[in-house]
Amino acid sequence: DETGKFLVLSLYDYQEKSPREVTMKKGDILTLLNSTNKDWWKVEVNGRQGFVPAAYVKFL
């Protein structure tokens, strides 16, 4: 199980638009929880879990 094993870097600021999403700032290091959807990845940032656009992050 690779859940929570990968870190990704936020390339852009992102403001959550729904309760299922999370806000991140450019340069944030996020824990990747799920990347099965090619468009939206589930991450943990600042103690919160939610989705961010996959195009806004990259693997470290």
Score class of each variant (00 low, 15 high):
Leu32Trp: 02
Ala54Gly: 03
Asn46Lys: 09
Lys17Tyr: 05
Met24Pro: 00
Lys42Phe: 15
Lys17His: 08
Asp28Ser: 07
Ser35Lys: 11
Lys26Gly: 05
Lys17Arg: 13
Arg48Phe: 07
Gly50Glu: 01
Asp1Glu: 14
Trp41Ile: 07
Trp40Ile: 02
Asn46Gly: 12
Leu60Glu: 07
Glu16Ala: 15
Phe51Val: 07
Arg48Tyr: 06
Tyr12Ile: 11
Lys5Val: 13
Tyr56Asn: 06
Asp13Thr: 05
Lys38Ser: 12
Leu9Cys: 12
Thr3Val: 12
Met24Cys: 06
Gly47His: 06
Lys42Asp: 03
Gly50Ile: 03
Glu16Asn: 07
Asn34Val: 08
Gln49Phe: 07
Val52Cys: 04
Glu2Ala: 14
Ala54Pro: 03
Thr23Tyr: 05
Tyr56Ala: 11
Gly50Tyr: 03
Asp13Gln: 03
Thr3Arg: 09
Asn37Cys: 10
Ile29Val: 12
Leu11Tyr: 05
Gly4Thr: 13
Pro53Glu: 03
Gly27Asn: 06
Asp13Val: 03
Thr23Ser: 15
Ala54Gln: 05
Thr36Ile: 09
Val57Met: 05
Gly4Asp: 11
Gly47Leu: 04
Gly4Met: 12
Ser10Trp: 06
Lys58Glu: 14
Phe6Ser: 12
Leu7Ala: 07
Asp28Glu: 11
Thr3Trp: 12
Lys26Ser: 07
Arg20Tyr: 14
Ile29Gly: 00
Lys58Gln: 15
Asp1His: 15
Phe51Cys: 11
Leu30His: 02
Phe51Asp: 03
Val8Thr: 03
Asp1Gly: 14
Lys58Ser: 14
Gln49Ala: 11
Ser18Phe: 06
Asp1Phe: 14
Thr3Leu: 13
Gly47Lys: 04
Val57Gln: 00
Trp41Thr: 03
Val45Ala: 11
Asn34Trp: 07
Gln49Ser: 11
Glu21Tyr: 06
Ser10Val: 15
Asn34Arg: 05
Pro19Ser: 11
Ser18Lys: 07
Leu11Gln: 05
Arg20His: 15
Phe51Thr: 01
Leu30Trp: 02
Val8Asp: 00
Leu7Ser: 07
Met24Ser: 00
Ala55Asp: 09
Glu21Asp: 06
Thr31Gly: 05
Leu33Pro: 00
Gly50Asp: 00
Ser18Trp: 06
Lys25Pro: 01
Lys42Asn: 06
Arg20Gly: 15
Gln49His: 08
Lys58Ala: 15
Ala54Ile: 04
Ser10Pro: 03
Arg48Lys: 12
Asp39Leu: 12
Ser35Asn: 13
Gly50His: 01
Pro53Ile: 04
Asp28Lys: 04
Pro19Phe: 10
Leu33Tyr: 04
Met24Phe: 07
Met24Ala: 01
Ser18Ala: 09
Ser35Gly: 10
Val52Glu: 01
Val52Trp: 02
Ser18Leu: 08
Arg20Trp: 15
Thr36Tyr: 09
Trp41Gly: 00
Arg48Leu: 07
Lys5Ser: 10
Lys17Ile: 07
Lys25Leu: 08
Thr23Arg: 05
Pro19Ile: 10
Lys26Phe: 05
Ser10Met: 05
Asp1Lys: 06
Ser18Gln: 07
Tyr14Trp: 10
Lys26Met: 08
Leu7Phe: 14
Asp39Val: 13
Leu7His: 10
Asn34Lys: 06
Asp13Pro: 05
Lys58Val: 15
Ala54Trp: 02
Lys38Glu: 10
Asp1Met: 14
Ala55Gln: 12
Lys26Gln: 10
Leu33Val: 11
Pro53Cys: 06
Met24Lys: 00
Trp41Pro: 01
Thr3Ile: 13
Leu60Pro: 06
Tyr12Ser: 10
Ser10Phe: 06
Tyr56Thr: 08
Gly50Met: 02
Leu33Thr: 04
Tyr14His: 05
Asp39His: 14
Val43Asp: 00
Asp28Val: 05
Phe59Asn: 08
Val45His: 13
Val52Met: 03
Pro19Ala: 11
Lys25Asp: 03
Asp13Lys: 02
Gly50Ser: 01
Ser18Tyr: 07
Lys25Arg: 12
Ser10Leu: 06
Lys17Gly: 08
Leu60His: 09
Pro19Asp: 13
Glu44Leu: 07
Gly50Pro: 00
Ile29Trp: 05
Lys26Asn: 05
Val22Cys: 08
Lys5Met: 11
Ala55Asn: 12
Gly47Phe: 04
Leu33Cys: 08
Leu32Phe: 05
Glu44Trp: 06
Asp28Ile: 05
Leu60Thr: 08
Val8His: 03
Thr23Cys: 07
Tyr14Phe: 08
Val57His: 00
Lys5Phe: 12
Ala54Met: 04
Gly50Lys: 01
Phe6Asp: 10
Thr3Gln: 14
Asp13Phe: 04
Thr36Asn: 12
Leu32Gly: 02
Tyr12Gly: 07
Leu11Glu: 04
Thr36His: 11
Gln49Cys: 11
Glu44Arg: 07
Leu11Asp: 03
Gly4Ile: 13
Ser18Ile: 04
Leu60Gln: 07
Asp28Tyr: 04
Ile29Pro: 01
Phe59Arg: 11
Gln49Gly: 06
Asn46Leu: 07
Thr36Phe: 09
Thr31Tyr: 12
Val45Tyr: 09
Phe59His: 10
Thr31Ala: 09
Lys26His: 06
Lys42Ile: 13
Lys5Pro: 14
Gln49Tyr: 08
Ser35Met: 14
Lys42Arg: 10
Arg20Met: 14
Val45Glu: 01
Gly4Val: 13
Lys58Phe: 10
Gln15Lys: 12
Lys26Asp: 02
Ser10Lys: 04
Pro19Glu: 12
Thr31Trp: 12
Gln49Met: 09
Asp13Glu: 06
Leu60Cys: 13
Leu11Ser: 04
Gln15Ser: 10
Gln15Asp: 15
Asp39Ile: 13
Val8Met: 09
Phe51Trp: 13
Glu21Met: 04
Ser18Glu: 09
Val8Leu: 15
Glu21Pro: 04
Tyr14Met: 02
Phe51Pro: 00
Leu33Met: 07
Lys58Asn: 08
Val43Asn: 00
Ile29Ala: 03
Lys26Ala: 13
Gly27Phe: 04
Val22His: 02
Phe51Lys: 02
Leu33Gly: 00
Leu32Thr: 01
Thr31Lys: 12
Lys25His: 10
Gln15Arg: 09
Thr3Pro: 13
Gly4Phe: 13
Lys58Trp: 09
Glu16Pro: 14
Pro19Asn: 10
Leu9Ala: 06
Tyr12Gln: 14
Glu2Asn: 14
Leu7Glu: 07
Trp40Ser: 02
Lys42Gln: 12
Leu9Lys: 09
Pro53Thr: 03
Lys42Thr: 06
Val57Pro: 00
Leu11Lys: 07
Lys38Asp: 10
Tyr12Pro: 01
Gln49Asp: 06
Trp41Arg: 00
Gln15Ile: 15
Phe6Leu: 14
Gly47Cys: 06
Thr31Phe: 11
Val8Ile: 09
Lys5Glu: 10
Thr23Pro: 06
Val43Phe: 01
Phe59Leu: 15
Thr36Gln: 13
Gly50Gln: 01
Arg20Gln: 14
Leu30Thr: 01
Leu7Asn: 06
Ser10Cys: 15
Lys26Tyr: 05
Leu7Gly: 03
Leu60Gly: 04
Leu9Gln: 11
Val43Ile: 08
Phe51Glu: 03
Thr23Phe: 04
Asp13Ser: 08
Pro53Val: 04
Leu30Gln: 01
Asp39Pro: 02
Arg48Ala: 07
Leu9Gly: 02
Gly4Gln: 14
Leu9Glu: 11
Trp40Leu: 03
Gly27Met: 02
Lys5Ile: 12
Asn46Thr: 05
Pro19Leu: 09
Lys25Asn: 09
Gln15Met: 13
Glu16Gln: 13
Asp1Ile: 14
Ser10Gln: 03
Glu2Phe: 11
Val43Cys: 04
Arg20Asn: 15
Leu60Arg: 03
Phe51Ala: 01
Gly4Lys: 14
Asp1Trp: 13
Asp1Gln: 14
Trp41Glu: 00
Lys26Val: 08
Trp40Gly: 00
Asp39Gly: 09
Asp28Leu: 05
Asn46Arg: 10
Arg20Cys: 15
Glu44His: 05
Leu33Arg: 03
Thr36Met: 11
Asn37Ser: 10
Met24Arg: 00
Lys5His: 13
Ser18His: 12
Val8Gly: 08
Val22Glu: 01
Leu32Tyr: 03
Tyr56Glu: 03
Ser10Tyr: 06
Pro53Ala: 03
Leu33Lys: 04
Leu9Trp: 06
Leu33Ile: 15
Asp28Gln: 13
Glu21Leu: 05
Val43Met: 01
Asn46Gln: 08
Thr3Glu: 13
Asp13Gly: 05
Val22Leu: 14
Gly47Asn: 08
Val52His: 01
Tyr12Lys: 14
Lys17Ser: 11
Gln49Thr: 13
Lys17Asn: 10
Leu60Phe: 12
Ser10Gly: 09
Glu21Ser: 06
Tyr12Trp: 10
Tyr56Asp: 03
Arg20Thr: 13
Thr3Asp: 13
Gly27Gln: 01
Phe59Pro: 14
